[in-house]
């Protein structure tokens, strides 16, 4: 196991952010830590990357204790935080050379590594422009490139595509995919289920500082029941009224409900709506998405 935590706890004042977190990550895999804001995702990454001291429990990265052997941990990991940690007033190349120099590479070796990474992340044309002029997607790619200068064994990505447009998101995903093929272990956090579904071998759902689900995307989908009901109403208001009658997750005029797929359940839902005098326009059933898993799990845990 490249990451092992046991009973990890972190409090800020009276607020408990991590509440006895147990986690294991196998080398070479991609783990997505999924959860709403405030679930403890960023704190987990900060503890594992030696930035924050835990209050209780233990965490080991590549066999090194994150508190007592922090320097050893830093030698094998890289961190890409939530906000692109790049120097705006330096060029892309200067940023990369700087990181390589900090990793004690000689000047020529640093330059060579910078050129290599600029090429790989499609930043050759922008290499000698100041980062201030880069788009959000280019910044993220540079940020990612800076994390790879020293060829880490384990890469932490904290919400790698938050705030990116769909095209940049796809290119970032492709870049992450390439890393996986190189054998880098990836530990990422995300609020997007689509992202977890697409990138991760294993998904851990975090809620209120603890693990509420752990498994592959398929296993998680199966765990909430086989089917999802989509009920469509005449208006958004109707859908919201229906939600207060039968629960579920409203999205415009449509209400999504987890279901066991039985006729009896459908019957019961329609009866309840009839009793509340809410008219259903259409009914559809399909396999649950990770969104359903998420809603179900975090609703249960809350």
């Amino acid at each position: 196991m490249i990451v092992e935590t046991e009973g990890l706890t972190k409090r800020y004042g009276t607020r408990t952010v991590l509440n006895g977190l147990d986690l294991e990550v196998a080398e070479g895999s991609v783990l997505a830590l999924l959860g709403p804001n405030g679930a403890g995702k960023t704190t987990t990454i900060r503890v594992l990357s030696t930035l924050t001291r835990p209050d209780g429990g233990s965490a080991r990265v590549c066999g090194f204790d994150v508190v007592r052997q922090a320097a050893d941990v830093r030698g094998v990991i890289s961190l890409t935080g939530q906000y692109a940690a790049v120097d705006e007033e330096q060029t892309g190349r200067e940023n990369l050379v700087m990181i390589a120099r900090l990793h004690r590479r000689t000047r020529p070796a640093a330059r060579a590594r910078a050129s290599e990474l600029l090429e790989r992340f499609g930043l050759v044309d922008a290499a000698d422009r100041r980062v201030r002029t880069y788009s959000g997607g280019m910044r993220r790619r540079l940020d990612l490139a800076m994390s790879l200068v020293a060829r880490p064994r384990l890469l932490f990505l904290d919400e790698p595509t938050t705030g990116l447009d769909p095209v940049s998101r796809t290119t970032t995903w492709d870049a992450i995919g390439d890393l996986v093929r190189d054998g880098v272990t990836i530990f990422l956090t995300t609020q997007y289920l689509e992202e977890a579904d697409r990138l991760a071998d294993r998904i851990v759902v975090l809620h209120n500082g603890g693990v509420v689900a752990d498994g592959t995307a398929d296993a998680l989908k199966n765990s909430v029941g086989g089917t999802r009901l989509d009920l469509t109403f005449a208006s958004r208001e109707e859908a919201l009224r229906a939600r207060s009658a039968v629960g579920g997750l409203a999205d415009g005029p449509t209400l999504g409900l987890p279901s066991d797929g039985s006729a009896a359940h459908l019957h019961r839902v329609l009866d309840d709506l009839l009793a509340a005098r809410i008219h259903v326009l259409r009914v559809a059933t399909h396999r649950p998405t990770l969104d359903d898993v998420f809603t179900t799990l975090t609703a249960v845990a809350a």
Binding site: R46, S49, T50, L51, A71, R74, G75, I77, S78, L79, G81, Q82, Y83, A84, A85, V86, D87, I99, L102, H103, M146, S147, A150
Partner: peptide, 12 residues
Amino acid sequence: KGVVDRFRSMPI
């Protein structure tokens, strides 16, 4: 800006 976080997670 989180630049410090990057430096602090490096072996320096």
